[in-house]
Amino acid sequence: MTLSTPTQVRSVKRSFWKRVGQTFVNAPWNWIVMLGYLSVMLLLPLAAMFFKALELPLSEVWQIATSPIALSTYDVTFTTAFLSALIGGVFGTLVAWVLVRYDFPLKRVVDASIDLPFALPTAVAGLTLATLYSEKGWIGSLFAPFGIKIAFTRLGVAIAMTFISLPFVVRTVQPVLSEMEKDIEEAAWSLGASRFQTFWRVILPPLLPSILTGIALGFSRAVGEYGSTVIISSNTPFRDLIAPILVFQRLEQYDYSGATVIGVVMLLISLLLLLLINFLQAWGQRYNAR
């Protein structure tokens, strides 16, 4: 019964592809629009990049991907993005807490303004942050006497990345926090838990999945960020040059292989991050369902 002759296999195969073809032709037109658009706009460019990378000999790919300048940009990009996402995580949670639990004047305006980093074009963000945190800017001039340069250093890149990743944490934590019952906290209080214990043992654990999701989303955005970082960074190799800007510079020099390899590395990392985010979201849903 399990044995089948090659001709049988072939005919089964042929009828399978025929079926696929027929389903596509007979598919509702909205399916055709969706799949057509996705193929032309998304899959074709992705394929172009991967095949370009596959054309190169493996040794060359490895050499470009692990060249000292590439390694230094990974280091700068990921450490800075990670620190920024962490800062965004701590302060984003604080902002979400303040917005959900307290009342203060102009609260609605503050709430709406959290999305400004999403809505403000990144070039404008980079421009204004670079002037503000430069040695002559309002904030930068406060630090200049202590010999701390912010704009055009790694610190400036970190500020741009924090700006970009802030809304992610606030917007993922806010809904979970506002649905949290105050009963449990009050129970902890009345059983004699201190403020710190209540926060650490009762409030934080259910929030943790959404905080981590927000941090991962912010990190993934910060890693790919180009517009604001290119303006606030001095783009000096081995100091504050980040990976997206290296891709751009390689393209400007018509070094397509160099740009492609680093681009593929970045794309693979964002796919890994996407998997991590999906995992975190699933964990959060399970946590809330319990």
Binding site: L38, A48, K52, S220, G224, G227, V247, G263, L274
Partner: peptide, 27 residues
Amino acid sequence: SLIDLPFSISPVVVGLMIVLLYGRQGW
């Protein structure tokens, strides 16, 4: 998740892919 993918790709990589597809040396 395929539809959400454009959000996770760095804008520079998006540009690069378009150059590799339609540029002078592209497909």
